[in-house]
Structure formats: structure tokens, C-alpha cells
Design a protein around this nucleic acid. Structure first.
Length: 885
RNA sequence: GCCCGCUUAGCUCAGCGGUAGAGCGCCUGCCUUACAAGCAGGAUGUCGCUGGUUCGAACCCGGCAGCGGGCACCA
């Protein structure tokens, strides 16, 4: 609930909903449970910013009033997001909408915390954590982002306490990017094998400005090659130094407060902000002669993801989840591909993160979130919470009291037992990590939803969230349910802007999905996003023209939607009020019996339909969503609209006083058209739910309360698939193309009709062409169509004709006088060049003895056939060219 | 430093052993009664470079270069 939906959500939603709708069409009862998380730190940051604008701090309001504001924000922001998801057509069960802070999730969080604590998998302790001074809270390692910054490397002299060494040295030189931490130094470390310092290990230095005596220690962490080989050690302010400190039992001196200012331990620098303190320390060091030099230095600094300020490693008492046992279980499951990652390469990323994983700091010094279910027995420590105040972890306050009484006695009238709940909240991801089962009724034993739906089938999410969410879910699910929470994890990429930059609120380069929905429609946006995703797991770039708020990609999908609208309109105009149901299935046997058999075009489109059906179902099923979208786009536009519809127009309009045979055939065409279109709409439904639903209703005249969304995926008719038929139809299409091309080359007006003559020695092709003369006539504006074999053609030569060649098929347009000879010559020369090039390549291959020996026979045969065809084509074209002169 | 991805037509991207495709853009001609948000026709590529494997490589393997990303991080 951090604001509003962005294009990344739209993308994610489109993918999920496509899968959900497809599975529903498969007849499955699909649960897709919607909801939002409370985004603890992000929301609190937003609210505090609002408060600052009003000149207030959250402490001025108090916890309760602040939380009221937070809930108000949640209502507003959550409402916006839900409204946006609805506009996209997200077909989820809105009655089940959940929120990570709702009652059920809260029960789950408390239970989960208690159980992990009981198992020793949650502990409390003082460690160096990532402290975000901006939000005043600890954050996890994942919420820290390294950024390269231009800084300085300051070289300082630390004098030896006991005067000059044997070799006369009076000091060691150390370098640091953070001079202010010098105040907390408790040692200087050198490499144990560094001969330069071996004699000095164990001796003492006097820390400048502070005067503390600090030892010189030998530690492997130090790289003798880097800098002077001496490292100042500040265990309370640096993770590596902390580790060194542990190894050498060094004291921890914290010199900084939680707000990023220097504390009392910083002496004269106390009260200064950390960045001012840096300057002041440098100035003081210089003034006192300890500064050797300053270098410009580019280095990485940890930044808080949310606060956008450098994170401070600070010693702090926090709650942690011991992750290794949880991660081990996940790694083990992954060996059996549980869960299965799609694409598979993300499994490695997931596994690597789960290997050598560090413990998870789950407490946040925030108000908005699940309050930690731990109660401090403050009566034991004078009424306040200190690091040594004992605590109990419990399900609620009375449970806590009972536990505390058992542990500390009931207290007395004079000294009653007083408990106070930990004021801190949990990391949002702790509750998100329980989502797959907390939303299904866990921890209630035998919860019906949990039994029925858990573990889930698939999680669909972006790769940027594998660690934050996916891994947290699998770790917690493993601990509480003994199962991985989903069978598949379908990982998708990010949506990038027109300049290939990640869209983000802070960069201000987001593209508003609602704007594109307003302009092009929700289905167009969905289709465009899914269609771009063919290379699964890859980022997608949404092309976008910012000045006009237009997107060519989405526009293309809108045009496709429009095409579907128009072809359906065409069908409605031509079905004479009949529907797929009243027309009935076009069964070939029955139709033949009735004397109105399927024609070539019908059999072709039904063959294609069956094939596309199978391909598409397989693609949807295997997360090939982009391929499914592209395949349907091509089938609908290039095959159904461009060819099939054009071919049946005459049959649908047999003219005045049609014969009974023509009327019977009209019905056949109507049956096939109705079937193809209604099934196409069904197959498109997961991608374009609104449009397909509307058009399907128009086409089928189904009542309002019947939904396409709830129909079954059409059964693919395997018997309709016919390779030979598809091949000969392809040849027919090619022949028509050649005629059209010749007409264009000759510059014929569309209204001019001319005779068309095909000459071929291949009987099957001749038959197909002869059977389709009516179609060819219509599609090429032919005056008449003849199909001749070479002998017959020789008997009645058509001199000076427009001629084209396609394989061994000659296409002649005998229209002497109308011909643009130069254009025609060009066309033939082009044909010859193309054929020659092919001949050259194929001849070369066949001439290689190894090819004939080692290549599969069918490949060799195909090669020979292609060569023969190319030679025939070249020969025919040359002859035609010669005829022209 | 470790790991991953990408490099194909002007742009955005498919293809992943049999000799290159789509959408958009571009050129030509069309208001042909579903659709000009359309129809028909057309042009466009040493598939990053370089070795190798193979009868054959955009595709497989090695190296290099460039771009992008993740993880870790040296004071």
C-alpha cells in the first residue's frame, strides 16, 4: 500500500491473470487470492513526511493517533490499488481479499513468532546491525544498497605509546574513509605475516584526540598489500572490525547515537552530526599534526533503500531469525526442483542466496506493523526497558503475564509484576513470508482452505523479489508446513521505460498504466505486455512517446483488438442471426452426406485451428505466454482474416436467386466461420478478457449471465490436421501472391481485370489450382483462370505476357500491350538472381561428398528437391525473359 | 573478486544445428459494402569479433569486446 499501481504491477497482473484464466478454461477451480501488504517502512516514511509538512513529529501524535493515520492511508492507497487491478480485469476472488495486518494474518504472525522462538530460531541480542538514521530503525541486509561515491581516503598517524621502536619508528600510519569513527577505535590491526610490523604486534598506540591506549593486533583480515598494511579497528562501527574485535576480545566503543549524531563517548565532538563530525575530526587531526595526507577515493557506501541516506553499522539489540536451518531445508527441497523455477536459471540465484545466508534482523523501530509479541518484565529493571530487562515471548498479554509469573513469581502488592510489550514492530516481509498459508487459515489446525489449496500451484513474481519474498516464503513455509508453498515459481523481468531504464517513482520515469488503459483499452495493454514477454525472465522495454503519452506497442495491440471487433462484426452480418449452437459443428462426414462438403479453404482453416489450439494450450500451460499471444495474433490476423474470410465471402453472399446448392454451401461456410471465430475468442480470452467476452456474447447470443470466462477450452480436433492439405493451400496462396505481384509490377489498376494462366507439370498442384479457380478469380481480379500442363501451354502460346515463376509453376498474364516491359524484365531478373543464388548454394552442398554421406537422407533429399525446383524456376524465368525481347 | 543475462533489419525483439523472421517505421498503389486503427505489393541484415566442433553454426564449445544486472567487498 505504498501509493498506486505502476507498470510493473500491470505486467505482473497481466501474466498472473492470463494463467488463472487459462486454467479456469481448462475446467479447474482456480483460487487466485488478492491482497496487499502493509509496507511498514515505506508507509511510515510517507506518513512521517506528511507530518513534517504539518510541522509535526510522530511522537507529537502518539502511537495510537499515528496508527489511525496509517490505517486511513491504507484505506485510501489500498482502495486505489484494488480499483486499478480491477480495471486491468484481474479475475480474482475479491471477497477473499487479505491484508498482512488483518486479524487472520496477525494471528499467524504471533503464532509464527512464538513457535520459532520456542524452537530457538528467533533470538534477541546485541549485534552490529544496519541502522538507517533517516527512519530511525534497523533494516535488514536486503534493504541496504551499495552505492559508489566519490569520497576521500585520509591517512593518519597513530603514535606508539612507549616511544620509538627498535628501528626508530614513532608511529603507524592508517587510512580511513570515515575519520569520525576513529573516536571509537580500539585497536590497529596488521597482517600476521607482514614482516614490517611483526615486531610491533602486542605493543600499544595512543589514539589521537582521545588518548586511549589501543593494542596492535595481528589479523588475517588485513591485506598487507593494501595501503600501509595497517587498519584502524572500530568494532562498534564496522562489520569487519566487529569480527576482528570478536577474535581479539577488543572493547566496543560506540561513539554515535541512533539519530546519526555523535554521543558522549565522542568527547568534544558529542552532539555533532556524523558528517559534521567527520570534518571536525579531520580538522582536529590536522591541527594536532596527525594528518599525513588526503587522497580522492571512490568507494562503495551502504545506503538505506528507503531512507536514501548512508546506513550506519551500529551496535543494537534486535530480534533475529536464525536462518541457516530454514535455508538448509529449502536447499534440500530444491535438489528435487521444489519449487520449480521458470526459467530455470533463477533457481541458481535462489540457491546461492540461501547458501551462506546471514541471520535475518526482523525487528524494526517503527510503529506501523505487527508489534513484536514479547513482553518485558519492566518491574525487574526499575520500570524501564533496558538491554538487560527480562522478557517473555507470548501469544497475548495475559499469556505473557502467566509466563512472567511462572518465571518471576506473582509479585507483591508493594512490588507488582509489571509487563510492557516490546514497542518495536516486525519487518513487513515476516508477515508476507507467511502469506501462502496465513491467508488460507493457518495456524488453525485442519483449516478447510489450507487443506484444499495448500501447497499452491504457482507463484508469479519479478526476479527483484526472489530474496525478499520468495525465499522468505519458502523458509517459513518449510518451518511451519513442512512443504514448499508452491510447485512452480514463474519469474518475470522488469518493465523498463523507453530509454531502457528501470521505472521507479523516485526517477519519475514511470508510465501510468491507467493512462494507457484510457487511451487503448485494458486488453490492449495486457496483450502488449504479455506479447513482449516471449523471452521469459527477460526485462521488457515498453516503447513510449512521452510528449504525447502514446505507445506504438500498445497501439499495435489496440489495432489487433479492433481487427477482432471488425471480423466479428463481419461474421454477425453474415450469419443471418444464426449462432455456433444453431448452426452446429461442421462435421465433415455429415456435411458430405448432405451434399454440402467442406471446401478446401474450410478444411485448411479447420486444420490450422486444430493445430493452433494444441500449440496455444501447450504454451499457456508451460508459461510460454508471449508465444501464445504471438501465435494467436498471427493466426487471427494472417490466416483467419486475411485468407479464410476473404475466401468465403462469395460463398456467404451467393447473390440474387441462389441455387439450392449455393445456399447449402453458404451454410457450410457459416458453420466453419462460426466455429473458428468462437473458438478463437475462447483461446484469446486469457489475454483479452473484456473484448473476447463481449464479442463472444455477440457471436453466440448467450444470455448475460453466461460467461465466456467460465466456458471450457475447445477440444482440438486431431482428425482435422492435414499436413498435405496445408502444404497445397500454401502453394495456392503463393500462386495468388505471384499474380498480385505481377499486377503490381505491371502497374495495373485494381479495377482492370486480366486473364490468368497457370502452367505446371505437377498434377496435384494443377488440381488444387483448378479446384480454386473461383477463389483465384475473386482474389486476383482475374478475367478468367486457366490451368494448363506444359504441353497444352505449348499448343496455345501466350506471347508477350506478364510472366512470373514460382517453383516449377509459371504464372502468365497474357495482356499484351498493357505491359510495362522494363518492370517485368526487372522482376524476372530478380527471380533469376534469387534462383541462381539458391542453385549455387545447394549445388555446393551436394557436391561435398561428406554431405551426402553424413547428413540425414531426408535432408539430402530435400536439398535435391529444392535444387531441382530452383533450376526449373531459373530455366523458366530465363525463357520468359528471352521471350520478351 | 564471484555469478548471471544480453549483443540478429532504422527501432523493439523472436528464432537456438539444415542456410534469417515478426511488430512498428519506410516506399508504391488502393476509400475493393468487416476493418484506412485498414487492404495489396515492395525494400531492408558480413545474425558483436575471433578460433573450434560439425557434412552444415545466428544457433553448440573456447577466447575477446561492449552493454546490463545480481552477490560480495580492502581499510
Amino acid at each position: 500500500v505504498t501509493g498506486s499501481l505502476h507498470m510493473g504491477h500491470a505486467f505482473n497482473t497481466a501474466l498472473i491473470d492470463t494463467i488463472v484464466r487459462f486454467q479456469r478454461l481448462q475446467g479447474r477451480n482456480v483460487l487466485c487470492l488478492p491482497g496487499t501488504d502493509h509496507a511498514s517502512i515505506a508507509v511510515q516514511t510517507i506518513l512521517e513526511k506528511q507530518l513534517r509538512a504539518e510541522g509535526l513529529r510522530k511522537e507529537d501524535l502518539g502511537r495510537d493517533a499515528f496508527l489511525e493515520r496509517a490505517w486511513a492511508w491504507k484505506a485510501e492507497s489500498g482502495g486505489t490499488i484494488v480499483a486499478q487491478l480491477r480495471r486491468l480485469g484481474y479475475s480474482v476472488d475479491w471477497q477473499r481479499e487479505r491484508f498482512t495486518l488483518d486479524a487472520g494474518c496477525s494471528v499467524a504472525v504471533i503464532e509464527a513468532f512464538n513457535r520459532l522462538h520456542e524452537q530457538g530460531l528467533i533470538y534477541r541480542g546485541e549485534y552490529l546491525v544496519n541502522w538507517c538514521p533517516a527512519s530511525g530503525s534497523a533494516v535488514s541486509d536486503l534493504e541496504v544498497e551499495m552505492q559508489e561515491v566519490d569520497g576521500h581516503l585520509w591517512h593518519f598517524r597513530y603514535p606508539l605509546s612507549d616511544g620509538p621502536a627498535a628501528d626508530g619508528r614513532t608511529h603507524l600510519e592508517v587510512a580511513t574513509t570515515r575519520p569520525e569513527t576513529l573516536l571509537g577505535d580500539t585497536a590497529v590491526a596488521v597482517n600476521p605475516r607482514d614482516p614490517r610490523y611483526a615486531a610491533l604486534v602486542g605493543q600499544t598506540l595512543t589514539l589521537p584526540l582521545v588518548g586511549r591506549q589501543i593494542p596492535i593486533v595481528a589479523d588475517d583480515h588485513v591485506d598487507a598489500e593494501f595501503g600501509t598494511g595497517c587498519v584502524k579497528v572500530t568494532p562498534a562501527h564496522d562489520p569487519n572490525d566487529f569480527a576482528i574485535g570478536q577474535r581479539h576480545n577488543l572493547p566496543l566503543v560506540t561513539v554515535m547515537a541512533k539519530d546519526g549524531s555523535m554521543n558522549e563517548a565522542a568527547g568534544r565532538f558529542a552532539g555533532l552530526d556524523r558528517f559534521e563530525a567527520r570534518k571536525a575530526v579531520v580538522a582536529a587531526m590536522e591541527a594536532e599534526g596527525f594528518l599525513v595526507k588526503v587522497e580522492n577515493y571512490r568507494h562503495s557506501v551502504p545506503f538505506s533503500d528507503r531512507g536514501k541516506v548512508p546506513v550506519e553499522p551500529l551496535l543494537s539489540t534486535q530480534w533475529f531469525v536464525k536462518t541457516e536451518p530454514l535455508a538448509a531445508r529449502c536447499r534440500e527441497a530444491l535438489e528435487q526442483a521444489d519449487p520449480r523455477f521458470v526459467p530455470e536459471r533463477w533457481a541458481k540465484v535462489y540457491r546461492d542466496w540461501l547458501t551462506d545466508i546471514r541471520d535475518w534482523c526482523i525487528s524494526r523501530q517503527l510503529w506501523w506493523g505487527h508489534r513484536i509479541p514479547a513482553w518485558f518484565v519492566v518491574s525487574e529493571t526499575g520500570g524501564v526497558i533496558t538491554d538487560s530487562t527480562p522478557y517473555v515471548v507470548a501469544r497475548d498479554a495475559s499469556d505473557a503475564l502467566a509466563k512472567a509469573e511462572a518465571q518471576f513469581g506473582g509479585g507483591t502488592h508493594a512490588h507488582p509484576l509489571v509487563l510492557e510489550q516490546d514497542p518495536d514492530a516486525l519487518d513487513t516481509w515476516f508477515s508476507s513470508g507467511l502469506w501462502p498459508f496465513s491467508t488460507l487459515g493457518w495456524p488453525e489446525a485442519g483449516a478447510a482452505d489450507l487443506e484444499r489449496w495448500y501447497p499452491t500451484s504457482v507463484l508469479v513474481t519479478g526476479f527483484d523479489i526472489i530474496f525478499f519474498w520468495v525465499a522468505r516464503m519458502t523458509m517459513l513455509a518449510g518451518a511451519f508446513t513442512g512443504k514448499m508453498p508452491f510447485r512452480d515459481v514463474y519469474i518475470h523481468g522488469l518493465v523498463r521505460d523507453e530509454n531502457n531504464r528501470k521505472m521507479s517513482k523516485s526517477a519519475g520515469n514511470g508510465i501510468d498504466p491507467l493512462l494507457l488503459i484510457d487511451r487503448y483499452g485494458a486488453d490492449a495493454l495486457r496483450f502488449a505486455l504479455v506479447r513482449e514477454v516471449a523471452g521469459a525472465g527477460q526485462d521488457i522495454r515498453l516503447d513510449y512517446d512521452r510528449p504525447s503519452d502514446t505507445s506504438a506497442t500498445v497501439e499495435a495491440s489496440r489495432n489487433f483488438a479492433n481487427k477482432l471487433w471488425n471480423v466479428t462484426r463481419f461474421a454477425l452480418m453474415n450469419l443471418a442471426g444464426e449462432t455456433p449452437a444453431t448452426l452446429g459443428e461442421p462435421d465433415p462426414a455429415v456435411l458430405a452426406q448432405e451434399g454440402r462438403p467442406l471446401q478446401l479453404a474450410d478444411r485448411w482453416i479447420l486444420s490450422r485451428l486444430a493445430r493452433v489450439n494444441r500449440e496455444t494450450a501447450e504454451r499457456y500451460q508451460n508459461y510460454g505466454l508471449g508465444e501464445a499471444a504471438k501465435g494467436l495474433y498471427e493466426f487471427a490476423w494472417n490466416e483467419v482474416c486475411d485468407w479464410y474470410v476473404e475466401l468465403i465471402k462469395r460463398r456467404l453472399n451467393p447473390g440474387e436467386n441462389p441455387t439450392p446448392a449455393a445456399l447449402a454451401d453458404q451454410r457450410t461456410a457459416r458453420q466453419v466461420l462460426a466455429k473458428v471465430l468462437s473458438e478463437l475468442l475462447l483461446m484469446l480470452h486469457p489475454l483479452m478478457p473484456h473484448l473476447s467476452e463481449e464479442l463472444w456474447h455477440g457471436l453466440t447470443a448467450q444470455p448475460q449471465e453466461t460467461f465466456l470466462a467460465l466456458q471450457r477450452w475447445p477440444v482440438a480436433d486431431a482428425s482435422a490436421c492435414d499436413d498435405a492439405l496445408e502444404a497445397s493451400f500454401a502453394a495456392l496462396i503463393e500462386a495468388i501472391r505471384v499474380v498480385r505481384n505481377l499486377r503490381a509490377v505491371a502497374g495495373l489498376k485494381p479495377s482492370q481485370s486480366v486473364p490468368v494462366r497457370f502452367v505446371t507439370g505437377r498434377a496435384p498442384l494443377a488440381e488444387a489450382l483448378a479446384a480454386a479457380t473461383a477463389d483465384i478469380t475473386a482474389l486476383t481480379r482475374a478475367e478468367r483462370v486457366e490451368v494448363l500442363d506444359p504441353a497444352a501451354a505449348a499448343a496455345s502460346p501466350a506471347a508477350k505476357a506478364l510472366a512470373g515463376v514460382c517453383g516449377d509453376l509459371q504464372v502468365l498474364l497474357p495482356i499484351e500491350g498493357l505491359v510495362d516491359l522494363d518492370a517485368l524484365r526487372g522482376r524476372l531478373e530478380k527471380d533469376i538472381a534469387k534462383a541462381d543464388k539458391e542453385i549455387k548454394g545447394l549445388t555446393g552442398r551436394l557436391a561435398n561428398p561428406n554431405f551426402a554421406d553424413k547428413a540425414p537422407p531426408e535432408v539430402v533429399a530435400e536439398c535435391r528437391a529444392n535444387l531441382a525446383e530452383a533450376e526449373a524456376q531459373a530455366g523458366l524465368a530465363r525463357r520468359r525473359l528471352a521471350d520478351l525481347v
